[in-house]
């Protein structure tokens, strides 16, 4: 596990905290507020908005705890937390995953964290070209988060039972 979050011991202010289904309407309203809540650090907030949408939609699309809308649409349930520090924003998502998927996600995070920007760009192109498309999307959200933030992913797996775990993911976005 990676724990490089040097801002974690500093004083922080919680900007947003949520636990529940990740409806697109909610993600959109939260995202718009994140982008517009003040005029400072506009470049950092643009990146934060993009990362916020990607990681929130990962929860919405892939959480193993989900709501069904009209017996058709599957909306993932999870948690998010956005904190502001003096020099950075920290965005965390947490959702339920299958134990086997937690292992795959951990491997992906390790690969992404071990790659420099050039390698990430290669991975992104390769992954996007080879992704099955349709309901699976491009599967490059984690790569995109690191390319935008230029910080490593912090991730944690907490076992729930023999079949499921919680997967937490934190991205730090520097203000400067």
């Amino acid at each position: 596990m990676v724990d490089t979050n040097t801002v974690s011991t500093m004083t922080s202010k919680t900007i947003l905290s949520y636990n529940g289904p990740f409806y697109i309407e909610l993600i959109s309203v939260f995202g718009t507020n994140i982008r517009n809540f003040n005029d400072a650090y506009s470049n950092a907030r643009k990146k934060l908005f993009k990362i916020f949408i990607e990681l929130s939609q990962n929860v919405s699309n892939y959480s193993e705890n989900f709501h069904m809308v009209n017996n058709v649409q599957r909306i993932g349930v999870g948690e998010l937390s956005l904190k502001e520090f003096d020099t950075a924003y920290s965005f965390t998502t947490k959702n339920q995953v299958k134990k086997t998927d937690a292992e795959i996600l951990t491997e992906r995070c390790e690969l992404v964290n071990a790659s420099d920007q050039m390698k990430l760009r290669e991975l992104k192109r390769e992954q996007r070209l080879n992704s099955p498309g349709e309901k699976f999307g491009a599967r490059i959200g984690l790569i995109q988060a690191v390319m935008l933030s230029k910080n490593k992913l912090e991730y944690k797996v907490d076992k729930i039972n023999e079949d499921f775990s919680y997967f937490s993911l934190t991205v730090t976005i520097d203000k400067y």
Partner: peptide
């Protein structure tokens, strides 16, 4: 102004 990574796949198509 913004497109998520799933949209980038469709634009690439």
């Amino acid at each position: 102004i913004y497109l998520n990574t799933s949209s980038t796949k469709c634009i690439l198509d």
